[in-house]
Design a protein around this nucleic acid. Structure first.
Lengths: 240, 240
DNA sequence: TGAATAGTGTCTGTTAGACATTATCCA
DNA sequence: TGGATAATGTCTAACAGACACTATTCA
């Protein structure tokens, strides 16, 4: 109250960055994408893909996140949403800073393919249960992203973004179990997905060896939009 | 890719502000708190309470939000959480800007009392269904806050923060109905709250005229912490 | 025909909504 | 005692979980 009011002109500027937590499934286990920091501070240390917002290039923070992900991984993830903003004076040794954090989901095959491309930048997929010490406050950002993914999985089609575009029912089921780290009854799960009407049959079939072939599905197209724009398509709780 | 890389040193700085959407219940209708902007841009226009982050004063963005709310309303709301960050080059005529947006809940009586205090700053409570055109992109921030409040109300005790510390069951019931804009069966609602074990009886009773007096309740203390720290205490969906 | 996985059907306990009933106060 | 609101009890339909059963392929 009696302190002098400061303005952005008298302050030094605040650092504004975007950071992304990109998840993929590898050998049925949830992994996060990490990179090595090229510059100080924390040069050479593990960190989330991230970087400064570029006023000239980035129309908004989503565009900044896409640019950063493209430059560090070579891909544009099919799912990307804002996670949270971490903003304080202690998280970056350079001074007061804001991390506009995003979280993303992608099929690991897409990542692997991008890795083979000519200018493939180095990155690593790390099991979410064995994340090393990261730069800045990136460990807590990963924790927040993991929690968000698990929470949302209970009432959305989010885990489907970890699969190829077409997938069998068994794959979805398995993916949900691994992401949420719980067992789900196959029959009840199938019934649920069916009555929610979120999947679309694909004409093609697929075998898996000496047994009945499985139907291929994909996420309904209009649903993708509902999910990404409204953020909560499938709620079902008290009230109604 | 072929563009010159920009750094924060060559860029001009990015504007970083906090804005808060504060809800209260007035005459059983949900209201938002608005102020008139004292300075350009949009001087004299309606806007959410907000302001620059002050690097010297604010330890983090939550502290900044609390400072802004205190200076504009004279109170510290019992519930305050980060809503979303709006960050792009078009939302503020002064340049690329970040709004770290928060949303808050408070009992209207507390606001009214603060208003009577000596240095009471001017503010207005406006029905959420009659929000005027606001400065910047504040209308969409209000919309996002409203959506978040309604979504979370379905599985949390959030609406209780719109009531005084002690309240009757009928008050909670009514509050949920007004916040979520739906009808809720009284009996089922009571059963739900009871088995969720989120309320605590207060020894006192209260009348309402010529009829049986109602039990007073308060939100369980430990639950408040769970809510504010974990953000989702009462989920109950598929899986389990 | 047997092995293996895909997919469906049935039973049962739980729960939400609807609504009737009892409880407790004041005038 | 009647009026008003608080609080509880009961009935029923919907639904999730458990699990048995049928379907379809290849070897």
């Amino acid at each position: 109250m009696q302190k002098m009011k400061s303005t952005p002109e008298t302050d030094q500027s605040i650092i504004v960055t975007v950071d992304a937590v990109l998840f993929a499934l590898r050998e049925k286990k949830l992994h996060v994408l990490l990179t090595r920091r090229p510059n100080e501070p924390y040069a050479g240390q593990w960190a989330l893909p991230g970087g400064y917002v570029h006023k000239q290039e980035d129309a908004d923070s989503l565009a900044a996140a896409l640019r950063v992900l493209r430059s560090k991984t070579g891909i544009a993830p099919p799912y990307l949403e804002q996670l949270y903003s971490f903003a304080d004076g202690a998280r970056d040794p350079r001074g007061w800073s804001v991390s506009l954090s995003y979280f993303a989901l992608v099929d690991e095959a897409v990542l692997a393919k991008a890795r083979l491309a000519a200018s493939a930048p180095p990155f690593e997929l790390v099991d979410v249960n064995a994340v090393p010490r990261l730069s800045f406050d990136h460990n807590r950002i990963v924790e927040a992203a993991l929690k968000r993914l698990r929470d949302k999985s209970a009432y959305s089609t989010l885990p489907c973004y970890l699969l190829p575009e077409q997938f069998t029912f068994a794959q979805v089921h398995e993916t949900y179990e691994h992401v949420m780290a719980v067992a789900l009854d196959k029959s009840a799960f199938r019934r649920k997905l069916t009555e929610m009407d979120v999947l679309q049959e694909c004409p093609g079939q697929r075998v898996g060896g000496a047994h009945r072939p499985a139907q291929l599905f994909r996420v309904k197209v209009d649903l993708v939009h509902r999910l990404r724009l409204l953020e909560r398509p499938l709620a079902a709780n008290l009230s109604t």
